[in-house]
Nucleic acid binder design. Structure first.
Lengths: 106, 106
DNA sequence: ATATATAGTTACTTTATGTAACTGGGATTA
DNA sequence: TAATCCCAGTTACATAAAGTAACTATATAT
């Protein structure tokens, strides 16, 4: 009945991952690098402003890398680092759980 | 390079789990049933208002059960249902990831 | 009647997010 | 030489969500 002992690493992970949109952005990038507008259009209701904020946070955390290709017009791609890719099992867990427990109404 | 095909069950799961505080509340209940004030005090910055909202949502989703013991004063306990307990592997994933990838700055 | 305990709720403030229009650099077109 | 287009964001403003502290309701004990 005691609390979990709270591991500071775990707390930090939860702090990162439980921010709105963050997990979905990571999930969106799992298949490969994508550009700003692509991510924005893929995630319904995600505003450019918040996407911009989240990508910066994820870059700071070392989860996402921003690649600049000086073509014309410039092309910028966001991709997961190894740290980011290592989150794949998390999404597997969610996928397994939802497959077993989520009922679709209708 | 294509998007993941978006499974509606997965989307629903993300919708539930990515709301602020929701995952932490579930995690907090993993070891066993707890009362309102206990949960509130365990999670820094979680207000009673939001806790109340979240517990109602989680009850509606069938993830949490509210048990009333008509003692005096009344005792009310919140506990995970089987659906809720089935989320344990998700927290294992996060724990594994954070153990491997999160650096504590000092 | 007053005080204590639990489990919330309410009114109000602050923060986070959504919207739509705008910026800036560099081609391309008229 | 503008005027236009593309991309990758940013800005000002409006709305929604979350935090704070005081309050409600019920029941018992003093």
């Amino acid at each position: 009945m005691d609390d979990h002992q709270r591991c500071p690493r775990f707390e930090k992970a939860m702090e990162i991952l439980s921010k709105r949109w963050t997990a979905l952005i990571i999930f969106q990038l799992l298949p490969g690098p994508q550009r700003f507008a692509r991510i924005e259009n893929s995630l319904q209701n995600l505003s450019g402003k918040v996407l911009s904020d989240r990508l910066k946070e994820l870059e700071l955390e070392g989860i996402v890398k921003r690649d600049v290709y000086p073509e014309t017009p410039v092309r910028i791609e966001y991709r997961l680092t190894d740290k980011g890719k290592a989150l794949a099992p998390l999404f597997d867990s969610i996928s397994n759980w939802s497959g077993e427990w989520i009922q679709l109404s209708q």
